[in-house]
Nucleic acid binder design. Sequence first.
RNA 1: UGCCCGAUGGUGUAAUGGUAGCACGAACGACUCUGACUCGUUCUGUCUAGGUUCGAGUCCUAGUCGGGCAGCCA
Length: 599
Amino acid sequence: MSAETITPAPAPSDFIRDIVAGHVAEKRYAQIVTRFPPEPNGYLHIGHAKSICLNFGIAREQGGVCNLRFDDTNPAKEEIEYVESIVTDVRWLIAGWADHCLGFKPKGAKPSRTTVNGQPDYYLGPVPQAEIENRKSKIESEPFFASDYFDALYDHALELIKRGKAYVCDLSPEDTEKYRGAPDKPGRDSPFRNRRVAENLDLFTRMKAGEFPDGARSLRSKIDMASPNMWLRDPLLYRIRHLPHYHAGDKWCIYPLYDYAHCLSDYLEGVSHSLCSLEFVPHRALYDWVLESLDLPRPLPRQYEFAKLAPTYTLLSKRNILRLVQGKTVAGWDDPRLPTLSGLRRRGIPASALRKFVTGVGVTIYNSVTEIAVFEHAVREELNALATRRLAVLRPVKVVLTNIPAGEVLECEATNNPQDENPTTRKIALTREVFIEADDFAEVPPPKYFRLKPGGEVRLKYACIIRCDEVVKDSSGAITEIRCTAQLDTRSGQPNADKKVKGTIHWVSAADCMEAEVRLYDRLFTVPEPAAEADFLKVVNPKSLEVVTARLEASLATAKPADRFQFERLGYFALDPKDSTPAKPVFNRTITLKDTWAK
RNA sequence: UGCCCGAUGGUGUAAUGGUAGCACGAACGACUCUGACUCGUUCUGUCUAGGUUCGAGUCCUAGUCGGGCAGCCA
């Protein structure tokens, strides 16, 4: 399988890659290091895929590494369950593509004190996966955690205080907000802004020691309360939270805030390019301020921002997805209708299709909406190339081929994937009784209907042409069987094999098939922008999931969850990795085939 | 009524002062033992007004519209 995507894709180019390429050309950094820094407070979704592919993509293109780091500075929201799902999702998305660039660290490692050019420093560099795997003596590795840096961060905070660039503030959260002013009004200095260094040091130490309750004090940067940039009005660096941390344990009761922790985490790991979404543009000045205020000895990372992905007919914010999960609109974070990576994976979307899609939409500095059709196109393109063709009937109607004796089995040869360079084949059984799709027969056919109709002819794919002689109904008028004549000389290899008919339909032998539950998924929302609705629960698609009992070609009994199938003329399907059992197989419809007839 | 950012077909994106291109989509057609795939044709675009220049999508000014910013969230 190709490392990039199954089908060819152009080498990505965007303004960030241009910047990185420029830095590589001028040898600004020893190595290109990016990072993907999720907060473990929810599952990853397709929007994160864009960031993952950008960060890992740049790393692999430049021979660099991309650190997976948990931005876990808020113990109130974060959980180990999310850490595990995120690691799984990231590994899945980059497998066979950029997994060799995945930056982990030795298990339990924390930043170590070093000296660079005579200056004290902290450093915890990545160990690329490729290196971990090649080492003779296996080392255990794990992702990075911002919470592993709490000691170093605390140390740097002390330094900031000593430099007169941070102070302990006793203002309540409410008063802090009042003092901050408004976008068009300057803020006012905190009455605690000019505390002496010694007092700040004493108070901050006691904050750490747990002497004060939550919210009683905070550590603040000393920048400019009149700045037109709200994020420069002495933003908080530390807050008091008497809460245990899922990773750091109960050692801390003060926790750093994002703006303080993130830039320093980047620096500690030797990150060169810190990529984030547009809402952090105003934070960039603060990112730089923290790093520059510390007079650090190594090259500083730089932050660059890009627009988030916004596909139509879906919801991307963790908060909204959480609402769908908790409200039981969907069956869980991995429901195949959700844009979560675990949901998409379960639905059968190949990681390569996701990569192709998110890199194809490009990287810009303005928000835009991406039609979900672009995603669907990428999925079909990948699946068309790799999916094994099988015959399956979702809504079976019995057809009796009256000229084939009961018990007789006619072997037919079926192509496994016509897209392969040298397609292989398999044998399927044609018997007296077969099932065809209810949709493929019409008693009163609309104009240009190519399929089976009374007196009409149609080809059973890979088998022969049949003619409809009679329709048998029960007392309620429902069709119980369709009686046809099989034109056996139109089978492959027979004299009339080349006989043309307008329609070809799929079928399975009634004597040689299996039953399976098939879940037919459709988009979750009926409107392009559900997030713009007053209540998105009101625009949930009532037909987003339909469950049928289908008849499948017998060979599907050996299907494995990683297999990708095209049920001919219907769409792409994969075994549900969670609910399927050998005794009771469950297939998910990943996506339908394009249907120009339905229109 | 502050500061920052942006604006190219229906949608996404490219063109880095020199032919507005690609993709998705749509329409039509060819091919077809998948109404799929593939192939062909067609469709629609530089927000407005000034300015600089031989030449402006690109540079400048103003306007319009859109996005962001006032968590002890990230």
